[in-house]
Design a protein around this nucleic acid. Structure first.
Length: 620
RNA sequence: GGGACUGUGGAGCAGCGGAGUGCUCGCCUCCCUGUCACGGAGGAGGUCGCGGGUUCAAAUCCCGUCAGUCCCGCCA
């Protein structure tokens, strides 16, 4: 209300009349090519500088800025220019004039010229903006999302959208060149029993039944392999109803999904994709690859060395095994632990007590009981636990960790799984704290040989490690009796993730195209054949009719793009993201629907206590 | 579902038990013929997220609640 009154109070406003200027417009940055000639430009008022007897306007379009000069001798234009405000949409005609030497602005692409305006019209007005779109002033994200259409006017966001489009076309170009065919797969698909929570779509024609939005085109692409599409790809929308994170969008995201038939070794997929990703790093993002070749690191090795299956390889700080060295220790915490490992933090001795306390909290959040450490200063090992350790143990620790004066060593002592997890997380946190992540460098790695099954701590039983559709190494032989839990956990899959600077950006595998093995895979966890037939009937059925061996992978485009352009929040690289509660604050989705719509779908809402339902049903 | 942090004119922040809630940007009016983040003068605009409590006194401390962000769970 207030804003409207303020707006109307401006007397000039009542005098503004909208006009039109027809004919071809020249883009802002193209005007430099028309020196001495008349042009028409259209865009937004970026800034207005009113000198009383002379008015400058920086006009902005999607290409950039150009300066308009309005002299009082063009009385009509001048009067109108006085009433212009930021973000008004205007059109102007005038002559492009080279600026006098001392008037040139080297900071502006079009700084050598200006447009001397003789006709000016307002195409549309703008209220005072709720967010500032100029400069680097960071408005809080909620407002930016609510007014995303304004936020997108910022040069940074314009640039992001263009780069994203470029990324999409680069990927298409590469895949087309490599004989891949893009096939679009259904958005209205089936609920998948494994994996993330589905978005369900009630069926009107099949009452009581539901579609689900695909979490990935997994089954369709495998059916395409059976269908004789030798190399498939798709820039695919995927949908998962899980809580978001800084590196994970809510609801929907894009994958570069691909699959290759007659491939029995994942290495073939990996080496096919290496050139694409390396090229995106160097040519598209203009960054430096840490290593010319993309290393292959077995899952077990990654977990032991970096405490993670998605290690950031831009820095060292590897986990060092100390279990043997501390086998005979008297220090209870180490003595009673199954595994003792440690990391050496360069310059870690500079950490204050309260900083160490914060890292201790992080360690505890990952399951550690506490965080033992030693700092090295003036040739001395200082530590709350030093008095419990024998001199030879202290020596062994210092030597094996390679700790020097000024460093600190942090310990993990627990079950092996917990130790790796805790130290892996600390490794990341210390790297953040000590600024070890070079933003100009991209470290890639393929993590290979994932365990097919893993122990689910919560339920206390074995579960699928990743994707149950991948081919267990050894095929049928892997499932020879006796098949106990221990044995299951030794089965590996030709399954692989690509890691970029600590982010998982791709996941793939050699698929299981053999129904017999597929039944075995599920039977090992107690699922009957009928269950598999019911859930994956289409795929199983297709596999009976000459399914070629095949393998593939899928890249998370948004996340990869985020890291390539150096953002640390994935919502920054998407035009219209949802917020952390899954709400589009601009469009107000999700929203209430009419009773009639619900009726058609045979849906009856259980409670009457959904807020804002009444308000929403008022809108026609 | 759990934890941490944040919430102060239109935007970004400061104030963290005591005087009038301060600064930068924006907005409005006026002045200004070479600016380019133009400059100058004046002005408007705030239930300090909301509710309760402690206190002589609360933006400030406590409890609750709502919203947002980050993290854990979850995400093959």
């Amino acid at each position: 209300m207030n804003r409207f009154l303020d707006f109307a109070r401006n007397d000039n406003d009542s005098q503004i009349e909208y006009g039109r200027i027809t004919g071809m417009r020249t883009l802002a940055t193209q005007t430099t090519k028309h020196v001495g000639k008349p042009v028409t430009v259209k865009g937004w008022v970026n800034t207005r500088r009113d000198h009383g007897g002379l008015i400058f306007i920086d006009l902005r379009d999607h290409t950039g800025l150009v300066q308009l000069v309005i002299h009082p001798d063009h009385a009509e234009a001048f009067k109108l220019a006085e009433s212009l405000r930021d973000e008004f949409v205007i059109a102007a005609t005038g002559n492009v004039k080279e600026r006098d030497g001392n008037l040139k602005n080297p900071n502006l692409e079009t700084g050598n010229i200006e447009i001397v305006v003789d006709e000016l019209v307002v195409l549309n007005r703008a209220e005072t903006l709720p967010i500032q779109i100029q400069g680097d002033a960071q408005t809080n994200e909620e407002l930016r999302l609510k007014y995303r259409f304004l936020d997108l006017r910022r040069p940074k966001m314009q640039d992001m959208l263009k780069k994203r489009a470029k990324l999409f076309s680069s990927m298409r170009e590469f895949l087309e060149k490599n004989e891949f065919t893009e096939v679009t797969t259904p958005i209205l698909a089936n609920s998948s029993p494994e994996g993330a929570r589905d978005f369900l779509i009630p069926s009107r024609l099949q009452p009581g039944k539901f579609y689900a939005l695909p979490q990935a085109p997994q089954q369709f692409k495998q059916l395409l392999m059976v269908g004789g599409v030798s190399r498939y790809y798709q820039l695919a929308a995927c949908f998962r109803d899980e809580d978001p994170r800084a590196d994970r969008l809510y609801g929907e995201f894009y994958q570069l999904d691909l699959e290759m038939s007659f491939v029995e070794d994942g290495e073939e997929v990996r080496s096919t994709m290496d050139p694409l990703i390396k090229n995106l790093v160097t040519d598209f993002a203009g960054k430096k690859l840490l290593t010319d070749d993309v290393p292959r690191i077995p899952y077990q090795e990654a977990v032991e060395r970096y405490g993670s299956d998605k290690p950031d390889l831009r820095y060292g700080m590897e986990l060092v095994e100390l279990t043997d060295e501390l086998k005979g220790t008297d220090f209870g915490v180490f003595k009673n632990a199954q595994t003792v490992k440690a990391i050496c933090v360069k310059n870690g001795a500079s950490l204050s007590r309260s900083q160490i306390d914060q890292f201790t909290e992080v360690a505890k959040s990952e399951g550690a009981g506490g965080l033992a450490y030693i700092t090295y200063e003036n040739g001395e090992a200082k530590s709350p636990i030093a008095k419990f350790l024998k001199p030879e143990e202290l020596d062994a620790i210092k030597q094996k960790l390679g700790a020097a004066d000024g460093d600190a060593v942090f310990f993990g002592a627990d079950e092996r799984r917990v130790v790796n997890k805790v130290l892996g997380r600390l490794r990341v946190e210390f790297a953040k704290h000590f600024d070890l992540r070079d933003p100009k460098v991209i470290a890639l790695a393929w993590i290979v040989d994932f365990p097919f099954y893993e122990w689910d701590e919560k339920v206390g039983k074995v579960d699928f490690g990743h994707n149950p559709f991948s081919m267990p190494k050894g095929g049928l032989d892997a499932f020879a009796e006796p098949l106990d839990h221990e044995k299951l956990l030794t089965i590996y899959a030709d399954q692989y993730d690509m890691v970029m600077n600590g982010y998982e950006i791709c996941s793939g595998g050699v698929r299981n195209h053999n129904p017999e093995v597929l039944y075995k895979v599920f039977a090992a966890l107690g699922f009957e054949q009928a269950y598999v037939d019911q859930k994956f009937g289409a795929m199983i059925n297709a596999f009976k009719y000459g399914a070629p061996p095949h393998a593939g992978c899928a890249f998370g485009i948004d996340r990869m793009f985020m890291e390539l352009v150096g953002e640390d929040n994935i919502r920054e690289v998407v035009a219209f993201p949802k917020n952390g509660s899954g709400v589009d604050v601009m469009m107000n989705s999700p929203s209430v629907v009419d009773d009639q719509q619900l009726q058609e779908l045979n849906i009856e809402l259980k409670e009457t206590s959904f807020p804002s339902r009444d308000i929403n049903s008022l809108t026609p």
